[in-house]
Design a protein around this nucleic acid. Structure first.
Lengths: 196, 196, 196, 196
DNA sequence: GTATAACCGAGACGGTACGTCACGTCTTGCC
DNA sequence: GGCAAGACGTGACGTACCGTCTCGGTTATAC
């Protein structure tokens, strides 16, 4: 799932990789990006901060973006949807949780999306490992809403998911605030056009 | 509106700028980005392709991103909202037009958004000169819809605007297709949850 | 005489060294150097070509230069002086033999001399194991010449040895040809200044 | 003659090269090599010591060896043969001068010869710019000796030149001392075998 | 008409990060 | 303890692009 592990049943010959290395690298990478921003962090920095050779980085990851992606997924890889509690409430809790998290990691994630734009392979990775889990969690909520008849059966929940998701990504990337007020408004979106 | 200095009433002393230069630079920039992608295009490339000195570029634009932004706005600066013709129809025509355009320029614009992530000043510029006009055009349609009672008066059209916009930006940035089918679905979004 | 540890009377504990290993390594080393040149040959290459672990190389030799030295001495370790047959004739036969040999191995040996320049220990080794035997053989010829009165008793044969030797080393290192014509001229050197 | 200057009649366009740069680089290179030895000196060192960008080094010289060659030729480019004063005396003065000089620069020059062994182009350069001038100076002495009848007319002075030259190069490269005593013996070489 | 000032093409410059390479050491499990 | 395999720390390499600078020279207004 990450860039590193290639779990095989039979042990590979040769000196095994130091497992701690990955942990140290990702921790260093995360700390550095948080402290100085994605573009200011260099491979040499990560390597020396992690007490690791640059070559070790390149042996395990294709490049800087992938390290940072791993670093941020390690701490925020999972996006559980909360227990269903009515559409608006659930949605609000879900979004509020994401926004809280983005307040911290948003800048780094924006940088990841940025560097994904010039690397299709990395983009696919980002989509699968970051966007998809969050999309799935949201879809889970929305399909529950349909089940619970909080949304009509024919509702295009896939589109609704894209729109909700898109709305805050859009604001994130355009540098507009993602606060609780917005989470609240967004959680009401599904009944946006429902008459009074 | 562009980065290039606007001729004031009083003539500046010294040799005047060659007006053709800007045209040639933007044309070269656009062609190069389309052909090789934003990150692969360098200032030296643009300069030599336009038959211009690198210093001339920096005299007129702050950096690469700004040149490319100008280059793509020159060909797609305006986003007129079509004549109002019922919400769904109008929205579809509007979105369809944008998607057609993005099919060509999408990659470059993605790159611009990417490089804006590490340059707040440029991000503001991109927001004002690219995102805002499109947002305004969409808001214009939506407010007409309210006027025409195609949307309820209390509808949070600002949020709706963000969601529609966000939905396709999101897909654009994540490399998912922006086709007519999606335009159609999106144009129906406002009545998403309206009972059958 | 070589770098590889000589088996002492009392058997060491543990798994004994595979004797074939040395042969395979030296053969691989020689072939690689002949094929691609000294600087292009890496330890990894030698190891994998010989089907041996890199550690095995370092267990037996201090470094690359020493392996290559062994590899080339294995095939050219001895420099016998031919039976004395008059100074010029003997000298010619001696030099001609060396030149023939250098036509093949010259490039590798030049590289060995090169890498000796930054490693005093290896330089000493090269001197003792490569230069000295050839010097001794030449000295043997020259001292026979004195005995046979082909050279005057007071002749500085040590210097003469250095000069003959030096002459062709110099040409070798400067990339000038070492052919039979030169061997012939050089064999006449001792009577260089003798009146016609 | 050096790697840098390409004197053209008509001025080239663009910013002219800073002439001082070459001086500073060569001075730094020479000082660093004298202080730490050829292999320990890196391009980064030279660049930072000279207050110059690494790219500037590569813009002007093909590599490290060429810089060092220039650096040492700048201070020792010429090898004048002394006024003729009898063969032995002249030769002694000539050799003594060279040996004195080599006592200082010998290590660097050995390194240059070493790195020339893996770069034919550089070897040619070294031969032309370093070995040849010294060879010519020696040939000048020897041909004067013939003219003055200090050497017989039929003497193979070219070979003699190679031998004298070779003798001390050989010793230099093999790490044997080049002292005045050796200069004296070598200056007597031409009458080496002359009876009594 | 002469000075002044901004323009221009060209390209060298200082700086910084990149990704690669080879070295020699180490750490596994097996023999 | 030897051995194959291969990960590791180290450190130099040569390249790329950035944005600035410095040339000779041009083209305008201002005096």
């Amino acid at each position: 799932m990450t860039y590193v592990t290639i779990e095989t049943a039979t042990r590979t010959p040769g000196r095994p990789r130091n497992e701690e290395t990955e942990v140290r690298v990702l921790a260093s990478a995360r700390a550095l990006v948080v402290a100085r921003g994605f573009p200011a962090v260099t491979m040499n920095m990560i390597a020396s901060d992690a007490g690791v050779a640059k070559q070790t980085l390149y042996r395990r990851w294709p490049g800087k973006a992938e390290i940072i992606l791993d670093a941020f997924l390690a701490s925020a890889g999972h996006a559980d949807s909360p227990a269903y509690d009515g559409l608006e409430t659930t949605l609000y809790r879900f979004l509020s949780g994401i926004f809280t998290h983005l307040a911290q990691d948003g800048a780094a994630i924006r940088s990841l999306i940025a560097s994904a734009q010039s690397d299709p392979e990395f983009l696919a990775n980002l989509r699968n490992r970051f966007a998809r889990p969050r999309g799935d969690a949201l879809m889970h909520i929305l399909s529950q809403a349909v089940t619970q008849r909080d949304l009509p059966e024919h509702a295009d929940i896939h589109l609704l998911c894209d729109m909700i998701h898109g709305a805050f990504w859009y604001r994130l990337l355009l540098g507009e605030p993602l606060d609780d007020a917005f989470a609240l408004r967004l959680s009401r979106a599904p009944r946006l056009t429902t008459p009074g």
